[in-house]
Design a protein around this nucleic acid. Structure first.
Lengths: 244, 244
DNA sequence: GTTTTAAGTGTGCATTTTACACATATAAAG
DNA sequence: CTTTATATGTGTAAAATGCACACTTAAAAC
């Protein structure tokens, strides 16, 4: 804090209450939930069935409580909606424009989450109003949620190029084609199949299984798993940086 | 916000006050101020001359007021300390650990700023307690400020590699050596002079002046300016990414 | 005019990136 | 059983980029 704020008294115990003259605000958490269904990148939205902005789509969110920090609040909000925990969550940005929420002055901390759509069937209470949208044709959102999504997409793109973040979005076993689909969705461009495979293999963090996924093609596609231990060991030893 | 929160009433005007049951918090802004004096990367800190943590160094900061957003608060805080405005400021991360500030539950949004030390002599009110530290031997800080600085350094490093962010830290006219010193400070490693110059020139965003800076060497070093317009045009047209 | 200091300049090798096309395995259809 | 359809799997050559490396130049100090 500023010294200006602190100099209100010479009393050395003043720090116990010198904050009291300051304005308090409501702090919300909004979650951009990215999902992948082995084909396309998706985003989870809920429909508002009340005024204002009734009928419009929105990110899920909730308010920070006294007894939790923001990460915990984001986890709680997410679990309340999806019934799931233990998923990748990362703080994105804090939005504070004065009139961003017409209801009341609210500051919102945006988080983004990554999940594999197929292995996460919702048992949460909000299931009826929640819907997965293809990232390409997501609807317009309330407040500044569009901007939040835009920023989350940009962040996801950057992270995908420098960290093996994409694996959070895939099932444990996946095919090269699925991994490539994922990267193509995130980067929003086509990649060359051979170059992609060569690049991924050169990183040496995937394990090719003997198993094949026969559901997509006549020939079948080999399944891979991400070797997280190997990845982390490399990071530690070589200062290895994932770079796609 | 969550529907859960919204469903407290069927009254469609409920949104005007449904927030009232929620906890409010204090929101602070803390600024990591990076400076460059043509030689080394510095950080601006102030010394606390009151309890608790008397005698320890701290980032500057202040509280968000009702009538401003966070960016404005950061600008205000910075101006209060340095007497300066119109400087590069960017939101970094929001810190919310419950006991991060022993005084009272406070959430802090960290911002980082970049300034050229020499062209910014302080006329602010806090001058007496503020001090520039070389980034290499900055002291231990209060609360979670060390973590804030760590994160800001990481961000600065990444930004320096992808955006011409460094120019905020230099005077309008600068020499190649100064620019290289800056990058060496930020990246914390030595760079090859010839490769550096070739790389920078290939980006084609600097203008070499006929003027020389004679203060450092017998021969004198050509001065350059950053062509911001050209840079922005490139970004727009080619999707040009600064990559060092 | 000799010395001193930092600036300025180019090439060759290694690595990485990119472009690009055909054979293969298998299930389904007939 | 044979044919057909489909997505998988694989390698090389050319181009671009990254990286290591050492001498000359200009001007001031003496």
């Amino acid at each position: 804090m500023l010294e200006e704020d602190l100099k209100v008294s010479e009393n050395p115990n003043m720090h116990l209450n010198y904050y009291q003259k300051e304005d308090q605000v409501l702090l919300a958490v909004d979650c951009i939930i990215f999902g992948f269904d082995k084909e396309n990148l998706k985003i989870l939205l809920i429909k508002r069935n009340f005024e204002p902005e009734k009928g419009k789509w929105s990110l899920i969110g909730g308010f920070l409580k006294k007894n939790e920090d923001l990460d915990e609040a984001a986890v709680r909000v997410l679990e309340t909606l999806t019934g799931l925990n233990d998923i990748y969550l990362e703080q994105l940005h804090t939005y504070s424009e004065i009139d961003r929420d017409p209801g009341q002055r609210t500051i919102s901390v945006a988080y983004y989450a990554l999940i594999d759509v197929d292995s996460h069937r919702f048992d949460g209470i909000q299931i009826d109003s929640a819907h997965w949208f293809d990232i390409k044709d997501a609807p317009d959102l309330i407040f500044d949620h569009n901007e939040m999504v835009r920023k989350a997409k940009a962040r996801l793109r950057r992270r995908a190029l420098t960290k093996p973040i994409g694996f959070e979005l895939l099932p444990e076993k996946f095919t090269m084609r699925q991994l490539q689909n994922l990267y193509e969705s995130i980067l929003d461009k086509k990649l060359d199949k051979r170059n992609f495979i060569n690049k991924i293999n050169s990183l040496d963090v995937l394990v090719k299984l003997d198993e094949k996924d026969m559901s997509v093609s006549r020939k079948g596609a080999y399944l891979y798993i991400f070797d997280k231990e190997k990845y982390e060991k490399k990071v530690e030893e070589d200062g290895f940086i994932f770079k796609l």
